[in-house]
Simulated assay, not measured.
Amino acid sequence: MAQSTKEILYIGTYSQNESKGIYVLDFDRSTLSASILQTVHDKKNPTFLALHPSQKYLYAAYREGKDADDPNGTISSYAVDRNTGQLTLINQVSSAGASPCHISVDPTGKVVFVSHYQGGNLSTFKVADSGAISEAVSVVQHEGSSIHPNQTKPHMHSMIPSLHGKWVYASDLGIDQILKYEVNPKKGSVKKDPEIFPVKAGSGPRHFVIHPDLPYAYSVEELSNTVGIYTVEPKSGDLLLLARVEMLSPEIQSDYNAAADIHLSVDGKWLYASNRGQDNLAIYQVDQETGLLKLMGHVPTGGQHPRNFKVDEKGELLLVANMESDNVVIFRIQDQTGIPAPTGKSISIPRAVFIEQLFLK
């Protein structure tokens, strides 16, 4: 008899609408339903989470400071119970910046990267064998501005490591730059002289995704509601802009639009990007030779203000965190078209903004 697999969802939230912080859910794939195993609320606003590559630890970026005098956020490390998926706090440190909005872990599992929207800086942390994280090793403050009213100062928004972990790509929405930092896993640091790749003024690069098999990467641009398509030079990791494509549907009128998240399908054939305002996903087909994108259509997210979303690691499902409607909506990805089809199933979570997934055997 095949060994059964337990599936866990971790949901990050804003601490509003009676949210209880991080939700640990037991997800039943056969019924597309979930039950709450645990909630964790060590600080306010655990809006972004990241699993360690070993899947033994989970890291959370809280926007509340470590203590009353700390104007920065807090980074918490948790041990993951490999039988239940429940979390136990290991340690907490200051994020070393105001309003941490993104957290990631390098592929070797030795470095945690944190981006700060209000602080306009990035920080890095060394991971111990126990899963605990050090105080900040690198803190890099960005400088500058751009042409949009929301770009009066730097707004760091994400750090995405390269597939082998040699570099990390930092997207700064406030100064319209993607910066490539060299990573030192032994020290848990980054070199402070990055290669800088300017983007179109007023576009606001937010999140970034690297194709797993092809030398291409994609940047979702919040302010212009576009996706930038880049070649990635294999030896240097440098980026070269190939094209930029629109995200918005001409059939929907909305005064406010802000692109949020971007992910590839497991097989790398499809790209998805979320928009707040039109409240939909833009679906693109990825040309497997050129890396260019063909818009296949838009799918409503089944809620309001879709922040982040998760492409299921099995390649079957896509789950969207709709913050304003307090729900996580479940779609089934159609094999031939890549288009997420509504299942009619959703999970009620107050102010849901982020989804992480774990399989336990």
Rank of each mutant, 00 (worst) to 15 (best):
V227Y: 04
L51M: 12
G228F: 01
D69Y: 10
S348C: 03
G174R: 04
N327M: 05
V353N: 04
G144N: 08
G291N: 09
I262Y: 08
G315V: 01
F309T: 10
S346I: 06
F48N: 11
N322D: 02
L240G: 12
L295Q: 08
L122A: 12
A201Y: 03
K44H: 09
G144V: 05
Q304L: 15
N91M: 10
K44W: 02
V311R: 07
T301W: 03
P46Q: 09
G344I: 08
D129S: 13
Y284C: 03
K20E: 07
C101M: 04
R82G: 05
I330A: 05
D28Y: 07
D255W: 01
Q278E: 14
G303F: 01
L32W: 13
H155T: 11
Y78D: 00
M1F: 03
I160K: 02
K310I: 14
K126L: 14
Y62F: 08
I196N: 01
N184I: 01
N150V: 08
V114E: 05
D70F: 01
L358N: 04
V40A: 03
G188A: 13
K310E: 15
I147W: 06
T88F: 04
G237P: 00
P185F: 00
V353L: 00
G291T: 01
Q38Y: 07
S171V: 05
G109V: 10
W270F: 14
G202A: 02
A273M: 11
N45Q: 10
I90Q: 02
Y14C: 04
V111A: 07
L89D: 02
D213L: 14
R82M: 14
Q141G: 06
L271P: 09
S346N: 13
G73F: 14
E222M: 14
V105P: 05
F309I: 05
A321L: 06
L319S: 00
I210G: 12
R332D: 06
V299D: 00
M159E: 01
S30A: 15
G109W: 13
A321R: 11
S346K: 15
L241I: 11
N225A: 05
K20Y: 07
Y218K: 06
N17V: 02
E195D: 10
H148D: 12
Q253K: 07
Q16I: 14
E195I: 15
W167T: 11
E222G: 08
D176Q: 11
S254A: 13
T337F: 10
I262D: 09
N327E: 06
G268F: 11
S30H: 13
L292V: 03
A201N: 09
L317F: 15
K361R: 15
Y256H: 11
H263P: 04
S35T: 13
S348M: 14
L264K: 02
L173F: 13
V299K: 06
I103Y: 10
Y169N: 02
A96N: 12
